[in-house]
């Protein structure tokens, strides 16, 4: 093996790489936050909405879970403009990530809701609480506690999926890496560093998730 490692060109591009890392982090965090809202609303609709709404949500979930993420991005970025809906590449990336994670998130949170015993709901009813109050104050927190590990795993997958958004030139880490690589031809060096950065992002998000669990979702022990 005669390849000589040379990180100098890559290190020279630090500001770009850090910007890409930061953009990936923001894109992921935004998609998680909005995706969480979509997931909760969708799960509520699916468990207690009218039949037509349940049907729409089911079709949405099946459509998203049975098609590739890359195609979903292309559909939003290249397809929808034909219908008059235009997005910036970053906007399309965010939308695609939210639409994608929502489909999985709804099913995960639905499972959490269905794990709540009927007696809890009856207790809420017998105290005179309205359905939305019962959902918000009695069901939601224990439901999320029950499925929190699945939900956070899905969110990590979302973060990893942001790299696919480089395909529409969203300004995230993988796209930045591609630029540097094509400029310097230092493929190994660039992708080695980018791999470490994604790993760092994962560690960062896992620790945020653990912090949220400790602070808001801790289950009482005996």
């Amino acid at each position: 093996m005669s390849y000589e490692f040379d990180f100098a060109d890559v290190f020279a591009a630090w500001p770009e790489l850090l910007q890409g890392l930061f953009n990936s982090l923001v894109l992921s965090a935004l998609a998680m936050a909005i995706g969480m809202v979509v997931s909760i609303a969708g799960a509520l609709g699916k468990t207690s909405g009218p039949k037509w709404l349940v049907w729409i949500i089911d079709e949405y979930i099946e459509l998203i879970r049975n098609t590739p993420f890359l195609i979903q991005i292309f559909m939003i970025y290249f397809g929808l403009p034909s219908l008059g809906l235009k997005f910036s590449s970053n906007g399309a990336a965010l939308l695609a990530l939210v639409v994608n994670v929502g489909a999985y998130g709804i099913e995960i949170i639905r499972a959490g809701i269905e794990s709540i015993q009927k007696g809890q709901i009856e207790a809420g009813k017998s105290l005179g609480m309205r359905p939305l109050q019962i959902f918000r104050y009695i069901i939601l927190k224990p439901a999320i506690q029950a499925i929190y590990p699945s939900l956070t795993s899905q969110f990590i997958l979302l973060m990893l999926n942001t790299s696919v958004c480089s395909a529409i030139a969203a300004s995230e880490l993988t796209a930045v890496a591609g630029d540097i690589q094509s400029r310097t031809f230092r493929s190994f060096e660039v992708y080695f560093i980018v791999t470490c950065m994604y790993l760092g992002l994962s560690v960062f998000f896992w620790s945020v998730f653990a912090g949220i669990e400790r602070t808001f979702l801790r289950k009482p022990t005996r």
């Binding site: 105290l127 224990p142 289950k219």
Partner: peptide, 20 residues
């Protein structure tokens, strides 16, 4: 019906306290 229910307390066999 909520207005009626809040005037009627109910105690269940399995307690049904809110665990959180």
């Amino acid at each position: 019906i909520e207005d009626i229910r809040r005037e009627i307390g109910m105690v269940f066999q399995s307690f049904n306290l809110f665990p959180h």
